[in-house]
Write a protein that binds this DNA or RNA. Structure first.
Lengths: 313, 313
DNA sequence: AAAAACCATCAGTTTAATTTATGGTAGACC
DNA sequence: GGTCTACCATAAATTAAACTGATGGTTTTT
């Protein structure tokens, strides 16, 4: 049994296809086939059922794959140990970011980070929270930036910053005379929200629920970006809510319509999330330091009320 | 990096000697040397400092060795998974047994076990608890039988049976008229005990302490076996305490001198202990079943008081 | 029924692991 | 302080393993 064989098994388990798995492993298909067979021979069991297509994993195979993931991950950590010892911070690092923080947060820290750690090859992927979690769990992402708390098993969360929500209330709206909003003002039928899959929406819904206890409603309009949301709001479709960082780039006219919440303002917690095995932890640590250092200046801290993105509370 | 290389590193780390490590790994010394070097090259660090003799492990080396242990252990578990799936129970299994239970317990279960699981090659080693713990922690033992609770990190305990203590009181002893002993009767200066290293002794001392709170005393005589202890006792050197299973093989005359304790009798807990990683758990389970099944008949259960072998209480 | 997708097998090559033989160095011994 | 011994590294040769390219047989798809 070799680590390589285990990696091949993992590739096949993932792609359910020897040919594709071979490509992804940068070897030819016979190489991969033979190595997998060799491992199966050595163990005396079939890991994959090749009789039907697409191939399936046998019962034992599933357990073997799970254990192989362990072993390969533990093996990779040896490199981490050496890097940490050398004080070397480098190599590929894949980071997921949720769509609602991507455009505002990324430009803030990206430049600083790649200048400070030029050896790190940062690969950034925009993806919703559920996809991100799956990717972290199976090792396709080294870390992610998402709204927390999530409280997922095997995933650690380290808060980066707390971002208050700001109301965007158009001219003739019923709340346009208010100076400061309060959660009691919100009516779930009157707030424009992002479409499903954006965890921010969960936060807002919880916010509404928390303040008025209205559930089971359907919303008239849902959009995919805050820009659209603001436009719709201007058209008289209702008010909307924006995370603080999304408000700074609005033009002067639109800024007039912003109404902050009374302290304590509702807010979302944005965290760096990563697998509890802490692979590449030295890079994760570096990233955390850079981001929170930068954000510390950008968000004027206030007494905020944290809104969970989970529906459960 | 291969699993083999990691195993070689572990062998060197253990023996602090390439030549010996090579022997133990069943390869020649150059093979092992080259593979270790290759791994060091790949990682770009020295794992061993060969400049002085005996060789030493570098700072990074220690971390690498610790992680290598993980990986190798996890890799071995793949075989376990397959065995478990096949319902196969076999292979080498190394079991440690403390000296005071070895002669009584071993003959009781050995035959039954090897008949029921002929594929298991049981290797039994008699050793005191402290050695046993070290061996379980570094993987030289698959399990051990010892007096518990030990409460050692990374070690699991599964009680096999509770063995009451029985007093052996010779003819002219001050307690010879008593029918049933009580812990209050015991005087630490008057009880013959096994020499250091036998955990049973700790149990007895605790027992005495528990009943009379006498500490810091030195004992006149300490022997290495219960047989000697009984002989010494007959010679008028004082009474002694025997675990129940050690009393059944006494001849009729000596059995006259046995005096059980009043219920609840003091007792020791004998457990199967093993690493929490649960390697070869299917054999450990089988062993546990066989032993407790057999002992269930041998020890008449009574209301017993459990004596910890630890000094701390 | 033909085409496509996909995995296994084979023969040959490249690469890696291992061995035997040998050389060099640190400690032990006198 | 010189010699011996234990011990690790290196070199060359061998053996074993991994990998490739070509090909053939199944299973799906069309």
């Amino acid at each position: 049994m070799t680590i390589t064989q285990l990696q091949y098994v993992l590739a096949v388990a993932e792609h359910k296809n020897f040919t594709l798995a071979a490509e992804k492993s940068y070897v030819t298909q016979p190489t991969l086939s033979m190595q997998v067979q060799k491992l199966e021979d050595e163990l005396g069991v079939l890991i994959f059922d090749r009789s039907k297509k697409p191939i399936s994993i046998t019962a034992v195979g599933k357990k073997i794959v799970a254990q192989a993931k362990n072993i390969v991950a533990e093996a990779e950590r040896i490199k981490d140990i050496v890097d940490q010892d050398k004080g070397y911070i480098g190599g590929d690092y894949t980071l997921g970011i949720i769509p609602t923080v991507m455009p505002t947060l990324l430009p803030m820290f990206l430049n600083t980070f790649i200048k400070k750690y030029p050896k790190v090859n940062l690969i950034i992927k925009e993806q919703p929270t559920d996809v991100m979690i799956r990717n972290i769990l199976d090792g396709h992402l080294d870390a992610g930036i998402a709204a927390t708390p999530l409280e997922i098993e095997f995933i650690k969360e380290r808060p980066l910053y707390y971002e208050p929500f700001v109301g965007y209330v158009p001219q003739n709206h019923r709340l346009s005379q208010e100076q400061l909003l309060s959660t009691e003002h919100l009516d779930v039928n009157d707030v424009l929200l992002l479409q499903d899959g954006h965890c921010f929406r969960d936060g807002v819904i919880n916010l509404c629920k928390a303040s008025k206890n209205i559930g089971g409603e359907t919303f008239k309009i849902e959009s995919g970006s805050f820009e659209t949301l603001v436009s719709l709001s201007d058209e008289g479709m209702g008010m909307t809510l924006l995370p603080y960082l999304n408000t700074v780039q609005l033009d002067a006219a639109k800024k007039q319509n912003l109404k902050p919440f009374k302290s304590p303002s509702p807010a979302r917690e944005i965290s760096l999330i990563y697998h509890k095995s802490e692979l590449k932890i030295q890079i994760t640590d570096a990233l955390k330091e850079v981001i929170s250092g930068i954000v510390r200046g950008a968000i004027a801290f206030q007494d905020v009320k944290i809104i969970s993105p989970l529906a459960k509370n």
